[in-house]
Design a binder for these strands. Structure first.
Lengths: 236, 236
DNA sequence: CCAAAAGTGTTCTCACTACACCCATGT
DNA sequence: ACATGGGTGTAGTGAGAACACTTTTGG
């Protein structure tokens, strides 16, 4: 049953690894799994898996799943997301393929990153290859397996750089209706800085005027004290 | 001799494809090859090749070349670059791996893009897999093989977006000493717009004041008429 | 009335834009 | 002198930073 697939040349294995971010307790966190098996048994790693590759020519058979489908599958396996993927931001990050990055053989991994709202998933689950799955603060990460430290650095850098100009990132981290304060918190947590409320509100107002965020009539938030804030939502 | 390499699971082939840009005749151009063989025989395509994958475990043998090395090798094969690679900008672009993108079987390609100065290469050469190699205007590209149209769109978008804030792109397209006019032309050609000379010079001056471009004492350019321009260079 | 949070206003600075003017060189 | 291109200056606009002030809610 083994060694069934034969090729003219040596081929690499291709995996998809994914940095899954969310915001919990006002911290940007990422989902890691603890590896059940060697190599790097017991070490933390970002979730990943092989890309399903079909056999044969285009005309004669399926060639398997796309890279994005593989990433999406991985995401669903780990988080058992509830809502549709409009709530999720998923993007390819970078492809890591240095020889020696996996001691078992040549493995090239296409890294993705995802942002999900805490409301969007039920519970994280340890898969077959993991003894545990847990959320880690991005400021306090363990040493990870393979070159996953490097992948995480790139992923965090991407999130920090992109949230400023792509509202889809904030959208994935927010509930469907949100206040300008929540919107600001998301930016503060991702960037690791704090913003002046007044100045950030001007920036927020411009986004609203451009139609990239819609003002609702509701003005909820019956929190303890203080004036209730207006609620906003993303278009569509 | 064939079917020598056996695996437990079907594996994809991994290639590196590369969009090689330069500036010729005040136009942003890209190097394409005309395919000698099927599939897409006779069609234009961006240069590419398989990533060299070794065999065996990390401890027992080499696992082949890195993705960046593969891209560099491809670049040298096509352009027979003369100078060292400080003159070249090379960066990973995106990984394309949709099933069906190559009719022969599952092929995942890690796309790179490179910027080279016209002074840095001798002559472009058609490799074994091509009948011809030629420079095309990015505004006037032919229909290309595989999903190379899509790759080119992404590559051009990256160049246009990144040249504004990363001086390494302009550096790769300029001679070692250059005038502010040449620097501006590079930006104009890449972005496809034109910049006010005075305003661009202020921007240029800020880059110089930040030390990202150095002012030389030379003030060459014995061109026909007009005041000779000051020469600048990049650090190091 | 007071605390707390939302919401707005004022001023300064800085970068980008449009446009005008002077400087240095070859013919 | 004049054409050609380099270099600089001015005024307007718009975004970001620092900071002060007003408004609306619960207790």
């Amino acid at each position: 049953m083994s060694k069934k697939f034969e090729y003219d040349y040596p081929l690499p294995a291709v995996t998809v690894d994914m940095a899954i971010f969310t915001i919990r307790k006002n911290r940007l966190q990422v989902l890691l799994i603890q590896r059940r098996d060697d190599p790097h048994k017991g070490k933390w790693a970002i979730p990943g898996g092989f890309v399903e590759v079909g056999v044969g020519h285009k005309a004669r058979g399926k060639q398997g799943e796309s890279l994005e489908q593989a990433a999406e599958r991985e995401l669903l396996e780990e988080t058992s997301l509830q809502r549709d993927r409009d709530q999720v931001f998923l993007e390819q990050l970078y492809t890591f393929g240095n020889p020696g990055r996996d001691p078992r053989g040549r493995v090239i991994t296409v890294a993705y990153y995802a942002l999900i709202s805490p409301e969007a998933y039920r519970r994280v689950e340890a898969g077959d290859d993991a003894v545990e799955a847990a959320w880690f603060d991005v400021e306090d990460l363990p040493t990870m397996a393979f070159d996953h430290d490097q992948i995480m650095v790139a992923a965090i850098e991407r999130v920090r750089g992109k949230i400023d100009y792509d509202p889809r990132l904030a959208k994935a981290l927010l509930p469907s209706e949100f206040t300008s304060r929540q919107f600001r918190r998301v930016h503060e947590v991702c960037k690791g800085t704090s913003y002046d409320r007044s100045n950030f509100n001007k920036r927020f107002k411009r986004i609203v005027e451009d139609g990239r965020i819609l003002e609702t009539d509701d003005t909820q938030e019956p929190t303890g004290a203080g004036r209730p804030a207006r609620l906003y939502q993303f278009p569509e």
